[in-house]
Computed example of a mutant assay.
Amino acid sequence: MKTHPNELFFYYAPESNGSKQTRAMAYAITRHVNEFNFQKERLTSTAWRTLLNLLGLRAKDLLNRAHPEYQAKIAGHDFNDEDWINILINHPYMLKAPIAVKNNHAVLCKSPNDILKLG
């Protein structure tokens, strides 16, 4: 599939920290933003693996460990890589921050200014 050279993919849970500000920054970088709102859409395990490879992170690195549901259901358990991917698929609202991808480079936007790393 052909994409615009300035196209930015923005993956977020609206209730996550800084999503609104980071989303606004995405539109400041380019008009070509493809949004993936986790309240409306689910990513496949392949899509999550692709994002993790671009980020250079593990699935558990993306989760907000302070989230009450993380503390209640996940903390203290030993999961394999596939289990962590399934947690992301089923509980994307536990992401610690939005993810932005542009030109095969990805960044976990812990602060809204992190999206500027994509240029």
Rank of each mutant, 00 (worst) to 15 (best):
F38S: 06
W48I: 10
N37L: 01
F38E: 06
W48Y: 14
R58Y: 04
G56C: 08
L51Y: 07
L57T: 02
F38A: 03
L63V: 07
K40C: 01
R49Q: 15
N37P: 00
A47L: 14
L62A: 06
K60S: 07
T46G: 04
A47R: 15
F36M: 15
E35K: 05
L54Q: 13
N53W: 03
L54G: 07
N64F: 00
L52I: 09
T44V: 14
N37Q: 02
R58A: 08
T46Q: 07
L43F: 08
N64C: 01
E35V: 08
S45G: 13
Q39V: 02
L51D: 05
L55Q: 02
N34C: 11
N37T: 00
N53R: 13
L54N: 05
D61L: 00
T44S: 15
K40L: 08
S45Q: 12
N53P: 03
F38I: 11
L51C: 13
R49I: 11
R58W: 04
A47F: 12
S45I: 10
A47N: 15
F38D: 04
S45C: 12
H32W: 06
L43A: 14
L43I: 14
L55S: 09
L55G: 06
Q39K: 12
N64K: 02
H32S: 10
T44P: 12
A47H: 13
A59I: 07
L57K: 09
N64M: 00
V33M: 09
A59V: 11
L62T: 05
L57P: 00
L52V: 09
D61T: 04
L57I: 01
L57M: 05
E35P: 05
L52F: 06
F38H: 14
F38P: 05
R31V: 04
L54Y: 12
W48E: 14
K60H: 10
R58T: 08
N34S: 14
N64S: 01
L54I: 09
R65E: 10
Q39F: 04
T50K: 09
N37R: 01
R42C: 03
R58V: 00
T44M: 11
E35M: 09
V33A: 04
R49K: 15
L43E: 13
L55A: 09
R49M: 13
V33E: 11
L63W: 00
N64Q: 00
R65I: 03
T46N: 06
F36K: 08
E35G: 05
